[in-house]
Design a protein around this nucleic acid. Structure first.
Length: 600
DNA sequence: CCCCCCCC
């Protein structure tokens, strides 16, 4: 009885040649416990000699949770196992199979012999290495070479370079080939983005970090440096330059937070090495762009990323505001971009890039990975993954600047981003025409005028706002006589009550819920917010009457309907920009009487 | 160990 049919034909040879053999069955001819000695110092693993009956391979590793099963004897000598998942790892010219999901097919004691006549394992780079598996075997990891500290060339006296910037003997592999089972590796890539230093503080502690992304010809990966490493490497890493990274920790990337095309991320640790490389290195492609014309962004989905090359047409003010959820203060600056499709789009820059006002009117602007947003039409924003370049030295940029210089005086670009003040040419619409499709047809925000009747009064919210002129931010009652504004970061003894009123309005064909902010709410109610509050507290009936008196009054509304995303749901949100009452004589009164008689 | 990518 040969048992040969238990084994997958030529499995070992095919796997070693790079073929992805599905669930191969192989025989265990022996194994040996080994300890890691590099960055994985002390980590236990087992090295197996596996055979397909014809060839065998001695660099087959199991580790982690499999150790217990091995030590229980599950994969004893002569067992036939099926490799439900494995990784082939090429380190230098040694091929290491990492067995992730072995499944016992037949117990070794049931077979009791070697199947077939496998040739001796090949040991390609091991001069003097043993062919006998039971003798002492070479370490799985390449022996550490002498660490060299090479000072960088300098004009003045040589400055010793810290070892973490010079010492590397790892074999460089492609970024796409990185996985957590490699034990000695280095990657070399060009920095495509770099974040500012971020301080954090939460329940688990506090610290600072920065991260950067590197790209080579196989892929891209994010690298994060915390605390000490943040200080150590922040000034070393520069966008556009090439670095070799080794001895960093590989961990799964949370795809929720990274649009990078990689399942893993790297974290720099105490012994991580970051070495500046040759910036002309051909393994690391210069930053490449896939430019999308502004015109084509109109048809690009929100939340996708695009590369743009455009000219800055105008620069907005620096705006500081407080993020509602976190109370964090944010700084932004919008600039407007145009290109030769004669379309214009808003680009929002954040933080340091906003403060520094990096672009001026007429600057060529290149953004790698700008994020598309669809609030109020289409707009662009930078994110942590973006890389912005002003007046880059690329011929396309010179060409576009030339186009802008020639056409700036006659240029009337069509805006893709709707600004809040551009409703002068509002159209007249019937309410039956107002829906998501119509709003989208107007690139996200439809401004229109309509004549309609109030048919229902919704929620009237009165909130306490900051008394600072123009702030409008909700204040927190500190219950000590003071009210705190997070935006102004001040306590005030006073506050300004502000109103938000929801109304359902109807014309002959449709109806729509709209929101009136403070000024228009005061106007339509015919009462100032402060008096309204007094009335509410003193005389509830009168208060109800004031609100109820809105029913069946007619107005000319100037409205803006915009696409709005609320808890994953996309809907139309309409706000009043202006209202003007149309007198209806006693018509409204009669309707109110009718409704009151019906409800009795 | 961050994990928010913002606001209207």
């Amino acid at each position: 009885m040969s048992h040969q049919n238990l084994l997958t034909k030529d499995a070992i040879a095919r796997i070693l040649e790079g073929e992805k053999v599905i669930n191969p069955r192989v025989q265990v001819l022996g194994y040996k416990k080994v300890m890691g000695d590099g960055s994985d110092k002390g980590q236990v693993r087992y090295r197996f000699l596996l055979s397909d009956g014809k060839s065998s391979h001695q660099f087959c590793v199991m580790m982690g949770q499999l150790i217990e099963r091995i030590e229980m004897g599950e994969f004893e000598r002569f067992s036939v196992i099926q490799l439900n998942e494995y990784i082939l790892n090429s380190l230098q010219d040694r091929k290491v199979m990492i067995i992730l999901e072995p499944q016992l097919i037949k117990r070794g004691s049931d077979i009791g012999q070697r199947i077939g006549n496998p040739s001796a394992p090949t040991t390609p780079n091991s001069a003097g290495a043993n062919t006998s598996f039971n003798a002492s075997v070479p370490r799985l990891s390449a022996p550490p070479m002498a660490s060299t500290s090479v000072p960088r060339a300098g004009r003045s006296a040589p400055v010793p370079t810290p070892s973490y910037l010079s010492d590397v003997n790892q074999v460089v592999c492609g970024i796409a080939d990185l996985n957590p089972y490699r034990n000695r590796w280095a990657v070399k890539g060009r920095v495509s983005a770099k974040t500012p230093i971020k301080q954090w503080s939460n329940a688990k502690g506090e610290g600072k970090l920065f991260s950067f992304d590197i790209t080579d010809d196989t892929g891209e990966i994010r690298i994060t440096a915390f605390k000490t490493e943040c200080e150590k490497f922040f000034d070393v890493v520069e966008v556009g330059k090439v670095f070799t990274i080794s001895k960093a920790v590989i961990k799964p990337a949370n795809k929720k937070f990274s649009p990078l095309n990689n399942d893993y991320e790297l974290t720099l640790g105490n012994d991580s090495i970051v070495i500046p490389g040759d910036d002309d290195d051909s393994d690391c492609p210069k930053m490449s762009f896939n430019f999308v014309k502004i015109k084509d962004i109109a048809a690009t989905n929100a939340d996708s990323f695009v590369d743009v090359l455009a000219v800055c047409k105008s620069v907005g003010e620096l705006v500081t505001f407080t993020q509602k959820n976190t109370g964090r203060e944010l700084k932004k600056r919008d600039i407007s971009l145009v290109d030769d499709t004669e379309m214009e789009i808003k680009l929002t820059l954040w933080g340091e890039e906003a403060e520094r006002q990096i672009a001026n009117e007429g600057s060529a602007v290149v953004v790698k990975k700008a994020k598309v947003s669809d609030f109020n039409g289409k707009s662009l924003t930078t994110t942590q993954n973006s890389f912005v370049q002003i007046d880059p030295t690329m011929s396309e940029a010179f060409g576009l600047r030339g186009w802008y210089e020639r056409s700036r005086d006659t240029l009337r670009p069509k805006p893709l981003s709707v600004t809040t003040s551009s409703y002068e040419n509002a159209q007249w619409r019937n309410l039956s025409e107002i829906n998501l499709a119509a709003v989208r047809n107007e690139r996200g925000a439809l401004t229109f005028s309509t004549v309609a009747t109030v048919i229902q009064v919704g929620k009237l919210s009165i909130y306490l706002a900051c008394p600072t002129a123009g702030c409008k931010k909700k204040v927190t009652d500190m219950n000590n006589g003071y009210y705190k504004c997070d935006k102004c970061n001040k306590n005030f003894e006073d506050y300004e009550p502000r109103l938000i009123l929801g109304l359902a309005i109807s014309d002959f064909g449709g109806e729509l819920w709209i929101t009136l902010f403070h000024e228009d709410a005061e106007k339509i109610l015919g009462i100032k917010a402060k008096e309204l509050i007094q009335m509410r507290d003193a005389n509830a009936t009168e208060y109800e009457e004031i609100i109820g008196a809105l029913n069946f009054r007619r107005f000319t509304f100037r409205l803006r309907s915009a696409e709005d995303r609320y808890k994953e749901e996309v809907r139309v949100r309409t706000t009043a920009l202006a209202i003007n009452e149309i007198p209806t004589g006693d018509y409204q009164k009669k309707l109110l009487e009718l409704v009151n008689s019906l409800s009795l």
